[in-house]
Amino acid sequence: MADKRQSTETAEPFTERERVPTVVVDGVHITYTVHGTKGGRGSATSALSRIVSRRSAPGAREVHAVKGVSFAAYKGEAIGLIGSNGSGKSTLLKAIAGLLPPSRGQVFTRGQPSLLGVNAALMSDLTGERNVILGGLAMGMSREQVRTRYDDIVEFSGINEKGDFISLPMRTYSSGMGARLRFSIAAAKSHDVLLIDEALSTGDARFQRRSQERITELRAEAGTVFLVSHSNKSILETCDRALWLESGTLRMDGPAQEVVAAYEEFTGKKK
């Protein structure tokens, strides 16, 4: 399905004039309820009396994580999301991926965005090999496609550089190795929209370079890449555009250099 779409679109080169949007975020607000924010009230008896009296949990609290963010992303763009911890970057990515419903506003996407997070463990009790195969099949690749890409995926991940790790269960991997394999699996397919949540920061320098190359390729294949990172360096190296979120609002949107410079000034790294 996606392959067909890709083949029709790679034919036309990306031009500045005919910009085709891939993600449109229109006035999105996201609120979610967090349970258990207050300690000491979680006993069984209080939970029971709560159910009986139909009160809401005392620890439950509404968090307004994203407050009215609007932007449009176009084909071939790599967009960095920056901002301090808790500014709503990851929440916004989840909304774009369709994993969190916006409470107001709408998110439009071309095709199905794929979110790559650090915490997505795929199947930790299965071997890396099985994870590659199952991951490929789950993304909608055929058995044949998985077989032909398998070696590339494993080689790209660099998992086997220090011995035969691919035949070990994924729970035995270090967090960096796991993140590398997951990125390699997801990057094996061309995505219209790829969302990366700090996955690159866990890899070593060589893997970071390789994944940056892959992101460039994905962009050339008319995809859009979103990257959340606390490393301003990797944003500058990978992205041409940056969005700066601060406490749920879009503070700045523009070329990566300008936005990162303003952000650095704000956080006091410069001066």
């Binding site: 975020v25 369709g98 419903p101 998110v107 439009f108």
Partner: peptide, 19 residues
């Protein structure tokens, strides 16, 4: 805001996460 929705509709984008 409506401009953005119109842009999305014009290019045939779909609402993310819809069933």
């Amino acid at each position: 805001m409506t401009d953005l929705s119109a842009l999305a509709r014009r290019h045939g984008l779909t609402v993310s996460g819809a069933r």
